[in-house]
Design a protein around this nucleic acid. Structure first.
Lengths: 241, 241
DNA sequence: ACAATCAAATTGTATATACAAGTAAACACA
DNA sequence: TGTGTTTACTTGTATATACAATTTGATTGT
């Protein structure tokens, strides 16, 4: 054990040594890894300690194990490309901009048939409806329209959203267990074009989101980004963000 | 143990019972979980078996454990909303549609300055360049243009992509360790409009992707989807506190 | 009242042991 | 040659035990 590895538990040291061999390319996908017994001898540990190390590497997706055969380096499978959707304030803060937002609408109303269908409630039921336009350096970068189920967030209208974003508030008070996102390219309606200060015919990204809390649709949101001013991007490393 | 739980290992049964309590809301975020010793007694198991169950639930982000204090239901903060970008073939297969693709371009060439910059290579270096148009029921659903670094996939041009998609091939032979995605809304150029059989002015989603293999840019791809015909959707991933 | 100490509870790590279950190769036998 | 059988190896699960580290609350002493 090098002094560098001091302070790490034995099973951690085993994990690190294997991870390093994989990351550096010494071990390639499909290559065999030392067996539990061999690792135990190599590290002067018991088999159970080596077992723990390999078990955790399996859970992390770095290796695969086949009973009766052995352990092997996993084939890196970023077959799921993931794109992280951050809050607009987060995005702007990241590159140092100044965030502000205009409240366009903020009230309780009867829900239309169209939205009711999306939220799995009855047309005419009461919902909270809010529209904000978010700006960076006074340039509109996002139109956000939300419908909130009062059964999930009964005090939505009483909140002060100058300090906390609606998303943050909803995450705070409701146990959001599921969400669904849909992205499409659109040419927004005139009213939204005006709010976003864009020319007619300029394409925008439309991001629609539904969230659920205990089988109840908690929110239905429509976020619109001007295509010329905003990009969604994400970088991942081996499955993790 | 109910008969339903037959076939599961003891530690699995413990995990399932706790997960069910969390998912059903019986246990709420922050609630205390039975200690290892209590669980061991409850399930007639040893402490180590209960330990394994709780350890794995911790790794899965469902609970948190504090030495000397106890185990508690984790506060699920799905602040990371992730879009899952699937291959076009995958999406269409799910729908049961008939997928076909036209090869528009497939050759080796000298790279332009612009693309060279994206790929971190020198202008004039050789790269493989391919353009496909994917169709579902003869309707174009995706334009895909790829630049491939020959150092990563030297035999790219020799492949038969009627059976396997370029993405799948690249995943097979190259260890892709990192990837970056950028989504924006665009109005495509005339040539692409024609290939996708869309009207002038129709907005599209542009998805640009770069992948890395051992610090080398392996591929640079530009995927364009007609906004009206294609949607990207994703679901949430449970994040740790 | 305050501070130091102690005890109990809890999680974290490590070990030795045991047996089950699966695989693959060597082996024995017809 | 072909076919079961055995054997060796590997991973999977479970247990009992031990001690370390941390936190919390109770106890004790001043």
């Amino acid at each position: 054990m090098s002094s560098f590895e001091k302070g790490f538990a034995i099973y951690e040291r085993i994990k690190i040594s294997i991870r390093e061999k994989i990351d550096s390319g010494i071990l390639k996908p499909g290559d065999r890894i030392l067996s539990e017994v061999e690792l135990a001898n190599l590290f002067n540990a018991s088999r159970m300690t080596a077992n723990r190390a390999l078990k955790e590497l399996t859970a992390e997706g770095r290796i695969i194990r086949i009973q009766g055969v052995g352990s092997f380096v996993a084939k890196s499978k970023p077959e799921v490309a993931l794109l992280e959707i951050k809050s607009i304030a987060e995005e702007i803060a990241k590159w140092g901009g100044v965030h502000s937002s205009d409240m366009i609408l903020f009230k309780e109303e009867s829900v239309s048939k169209n939205i009711a269908g999306k939220m799995d409630i009855n047309a005419g039921d009461r919902v909270f409806h809010s529209i904000f336009v978010h700006k960076d350096e006074d340039i509109p970068v996002q139109y956000s329209e939300r419908f909130i189920n009062p059964r999930v967030a009964p005090k939505y209208l009483e909140q002060d959203f100058t300090k906390m974003t609606p998303s943050e508030y909803l995450l705070e008070i409701a146990a959001i267990q599921e969400s669904e996102h849909t992205i499409e390219a659109i040419i927004p309606k005139k009213a939204i074009q005006k709010l976003l200060q864009i020319k007619h015919g300029e394409p925008c990204i439309s991001l629609k989101r539904r969230t659920w809390s205990f089988d109840l649709v908690a929110t239905y949101s429509i976020l619109i980004y001007p295509g010329s001013k905003y990009k969604l991007s994400g970088k991942i490393r081996r499955g993790k963000i």
